[in-house]
Design a protein around this nucleic acid. Structure first.
Lengths: 147, 147
DNA sequence: TTGTGTGCAAAAGCTTTGCATGTTG
DNA sequence: CAACATGCAAAGCTTTTGCACACAA
């Protein structure tokens, strides 16, 4: 597993372990905080380095859900999936659809790309937030930029 | 067009005009530089504000192609499309596939989301960079993180 | 006139870097 | 022992904010 040309340091194992006990999406800072709370003395720089490293070995996946912040999740123990993100409450839901694989291989062939991975995000308003919006309908009719 | 609750200022018209004469993807800084070169005295803050504003009126689309930098493109004069990005040279190619619309409406219904838009990016190595890699094959067999 | 947009510079947030030290193979 | 990883703090980049001034409606 680690024999992808990289050294086995305690820091890397700690980080990998922490990631693989998590089941959700997280960012670098959250991971750093969690490790700190567990009395692991790992610096932010190492966290960033290692995330980059694990990402290039395909041990973790990296996402950008619209925000200007990279989020990660483990690669294994989870079947291939994509994401729906609520633009109001930022909730993320996962889904699968086999047609994406078809599109991916078809387009790769057509455009002569060796496709390694993809990212499909659907953005919209979840059920809960739809109700919220209906309730607030009476007030402001202006554009809602933030919440 | 602009009657989406917002004021018609010369700055906004300049920005919108600049965007709609472009046919490629651009980021906030590029747009700011272009406007400055055209002797338009528009500040960075206004560029960012206006991009956000145009985005929420759906006059422009916003992308995050892996980098930690938002890229934009105009919404009209261009049919709906998605992107393939070369992970080596960062080239972006556009493509269309009607199946994505199907996935989008199906998943929206299934998960009770009112989907407003989506983002599908395929990542891989373009033809040119594939050849590059073959040429360099003899040397380093290590992981290539940067180029 | 009045609320809103603008410019400027400073601040904030995420990520990367430089360098001295420590550790792996 | 040599190459590489780490920690720390500083720097870098993109984006946001505060405030005084200007302007559209």
């Amino acid at each position: 597993m680690e024999s992808h040309q990289l050294r086995k340091t305690p820091e890397r194992f700690s980080i990998l372990e922490e990631i693989y006990t998590r089941n959700d999406h997280f960012d670098a800072e959250e991971l750093f905080e969690d490790l700190k709370n567990k009395a692991q003395n790992i610096s932010r720089a190492t966290v960033y380095n290692t995330l980059e490293l694990l990402h290039s070995c395909d041990l973790i996946k990296k996402h950008q859900f619209g925000k200007n912040l990279a989020q990660y999740e483990k690669s294994y123990g989870h079947k291939q999936h994509d994401h729906i993100i609520c633009v109001d409450c930022k909730k993320v839901v996962e889904f699968c659809d086999p047609r994406i694989q078809q599109i991916q291989s078809m387009m790769g062939e057509l455009l002569n790309f060796k496709i390694t991975h993809h990212s499909l995000n659907l953005y919209g308003i979840c059920g809960t937030c739809q109700m919220q919006r209906e309730k607030n309908q009476v007030s402001s009719s202006k554009i809602q930029v933030k919440r």
